[in-house]
Amino acid sequence: MSPTKIPGELSVSFRYTPGVGNTAFFEGLRDRAVFLGSRCEDCGVTSVPARIFCERCLAELEPSLECGPEGELVSWTLVRVDVDDQPLERPVTYGLVRLDGADTVLLHRLLHTGGEPAIGERVRAVFTSPREGSMLDVEGFAPVADGAGP
């Protein structure tokens, strides 16, 4: 018999430039360990990461506002399986964090060591060193109460 299923893939690779808005954001992360955002005065919305346009009115924006590094936990989940639905050896906690000064959230790891995270709790970004200009320049967010702050 010939094979009943034919294996295949889409053998394509990509190099993604981060764009104008994210370039400013990543340079801020890499060089100064700050989160750069942009504010649309017309809509009253501050977006982090920085954008060159407001998605609500399409106005041109400047990546000029620093937000965080502390913020509020908007939600969290304990991730127990990987992208292939296979159990992770060690579950990982991810959260949505609204940085101080921002109206938007960041998706990242939570670095809680004892006890469950709680919606509304204060968290603070933990940066890696050295940094390369990537979301992975942030190791994750830790509870402010844990003394992860300065």
Binding site: P18, N22, V79, V81, V83, Y94, L107, M135, L136
Partner: peptide, 9 residues
């Protein structure tokens, strides 16, 4: 650029 590098499902 923003989400996939985290590797999360």
């Amino acid at each position: 650029v923003l989400n996939r590098p985290l590797g999360v499902s």
